[in-house]
Every structure is written in structure tokens, then in C-alpha cells.
Design a protein around this nucleic acid. Structure first.
Length: 293
DNA sequence: CTCCCGACTA
DNA sequence: TAGTCGGGAG
């Protein structure tokens, strides 16, 4: 009989788990804790940021802010300082706001349910599901691009195409069937980042060759992304420079313009954007990092 | 130069 | 639903 995607995926699940028991990434610091606060911090950091870059930042951050209480009580600038190098600084602002919200409105307790987590700033559909799985070992929708890719490839022929909804449904079915969402999502992610990679997937040595609907596909099946514009000299780069400077203390616009290699117009653009986002404020000629807002 | 990759906002 | 948000490794 014809193998359905669900059937294929169900078989693949066992194989991925067995692959994981041997090849899983050991020693990821957020995998050895079930503390919802630590899991939450790691997931916020891992949004848009590679594992290798998060590891040292996570350790330093947890050392400084070991509990959600300590984070809520900290100055925003102190949080931003510890976030330096991770990028997307608004994630740090949201995390700090989240901590204060939990302290002031939730009695210091992070919600234990998906919908409750979703209400918190910075927690979207993926992160809520990830926390459910990694902190509470509870099945919930949890589809990032890696999980999406692995499930799509195994279940459906890469040359065809499958809706996100179908993948989400299959993913939920799999995690619900698993004995441990924590183990299953860890396995899926490790498999996706080391074997079933976006480009040049390791099909040749993959144990799932026999059942995968997309075996041998070259990767990047539906890649229509535009080439990335350069970072150096961009507005984004200027934002980073401005933040770095202001972390040392208030600066005048003049002083900011003397930043090495800074462009006057792009710097103005960066300052305007950061002000709109309430990251900074202008007091006369002085620019300062906001501690609220 | 390319790659990574979720949440929020308008 | 399109645009914005990073910064370092390779």
C-alpha cells in the first residue's frame, strides 16, 4: 500500500530517536535544566541566533540573572549589556519586560500553559511550544524552520510542496505520540542541524534513506530568498555602534557621529529608529539609553 | 561574499 | 502580509 506522510513520519520518529540517543548534541547548557526561566532565556536567545553564539552568552546571562526575580529587579541597561553581541536587542528589552510582568502580575510564576506563555512579550508561537516541551515536557505545537524542513522532507516529496498547516498538524501529532516532548524536539533539532540540513543534506549517510520522501534532494527545495544585503556600514551596523557607545554612558549626537567609520545620515536614521522603538531618548543634544518604556 | 532564522509592527 | 530587527563565523 501507499505510505502516507503520517505513516512515514511515524516510522521516521523511531529512527530519529535512536539516531539521537547516539549522536545527539551533549552539553547544551539549557538541556540540563527544566527551570522554565532558564529554558525561556535560552529560547529567546536562540531566536535568530546560532547555538554556538548563544552558549557563552547564556552562561554569562544566567550568572548575572539567575532567577526571573533578579532579572526583573535589574536595570534595563544591565540586561542590554549582557545581551551585547547577540543582536536583535529588542529581544532583550522584551525579555526584561517579560520578567517585570511576571513579577508584578503573575506572582513571579511563569505560566505553565501554551496560551498563557503566548501572552508574554517576545513569546510567539514557536517559543511558547518550545518552552512547553523543554521546561514542562508537555506536547504543544512547536515548529521552527528546522523542524518544518525535516518533517516536510520526510513526509512529502520535496519536488511537490506541502502547506505549513499540514506540517504543523503532523508535527503536533508526532510530539503528542512521543513519550517525551523534550527528548523528541531535541532529537528533531539535532537531526535537522547536523544531518537534514537546509543545504547539502547528508542523505548519503542518513539512516532514513529508505523511508524519506525526499531522499537525495539537493536541499533548498523552495528557496526564493533574496541575497542578503551587507551588514557592515548598514543602518543595522550603525544601530549596534550607537548601542555599544551608549552602554558606556550618555553621549552627544556629535560624539556619536565621531564613531569610527560612521556615516552621518545612516547614523541619524539609526538614532531615529531607536528612538521610535523607545530604546533611547534625546535630552537636548544628549542621547541616553532608556531604562523604561 | 553567504549563512543563520522568530516576533512584532504597520 | 511585507518589512524590520544582528553580528560573527566560514
Amino acid at each position: 500500500m501507499i505510505s502516507t506522510p503520517i505513516r512515514r513520519l511515524s516510522r521516521a520518529q523511531k529512527m530519529i530517536l535512536s539516531w539521537y540517543s547516539i549522536n545527539g548534541r551533549q552539553g547544551l547548557p539549557w538541556r540540563t535544566t527544566r527551570d522554565p526561566y532558564r529554558v525561556l532565556v535560552s529560547e529567546l536567545m536562540l531566536q535568530q541566533t546560532q547555538v554556538s553564539r548563544v552558549i557563552p552568552k547564556y552562561a554569562a546571562f544566567i550568572a548575572d540573572f539567575p532567577t526571573i526575580q533578579s532579572l526583573a529587579d535589574a536595570e534595563r541597561t544591565a540586561v542590554l549589556r549582557r545581551w551585547q553581541g547577540l543582536g536583535y536587542n529588542n529581544r532583550a528589552v522584551r525579555l526584561h519586560a517579560l520578567a517585570k510582568l511576571v513579577r508584578d502580575e503573575y506572582g513571579g510564576r511563569i505560566p505553565r500553559d501554551y496560551e498563557g506563555l503566548r501572552k508574554l512579550p517576545g513569546i510567539g508561537p514557536y517559543t511558547a511550544g518550545a518552552i512547553m516541551g523543554f521546561a514542562y515536557d508537555s506536547p504543544a505545537p512547536c515548529v521552527d524552520v528546522n523542524i518544518q524542513r525535516v518533517i516536510a522532507r520526510i513526509g512529502w516529496d520535496a519536488k511537490r510542496g506541502v502547506s505549513h498547516d499540514e506540517i504543523a498538524e503532523a508535527a503536533l501529532r508526532l510530539v503528542t505520540a512521543s513519550r517525551s516532548p523534550h527528548e523528541w524536539h531535541s532529537a528533531l533539532m539535532d537531526f535537522g542541524s547536523t544531518v537534514c540540513t537546509a543545504k547539502n543534506p547528508g542523505c548519503a549517510s542518513c539512516g532514513l534513506r529508505g523511508i524519506c520522501a525526499s531522499k537525495g534532494a539537493r536541499g533548498d527545495e523552495n528557496d526564493a530568498s533574496a541575497p542578503q544585503s551587507r551588514f557592515s556600514g548598514s543602518v543595522r551596523w550603525h544601530r549596534g555602534q550607537v548601542l555599544r557607545a551608549l552602554l558606556q554612558g550618555p553621549k552627544t549626537v556629535q560624539e556619536l557621529q565621531s564613531i569610527k567609520s560612521a556615516d552621518k545620515e545612516l547614523l541619524q536614521e539609526a538614532i531615529a529608529a531607536m528612538e521610535r522603538e523607545r530604546l533611547i531618548k534625546l535630552r537636548g543634544m544628549r542621547v541616553i539609553l532608556r531604562n523604561d518604556g
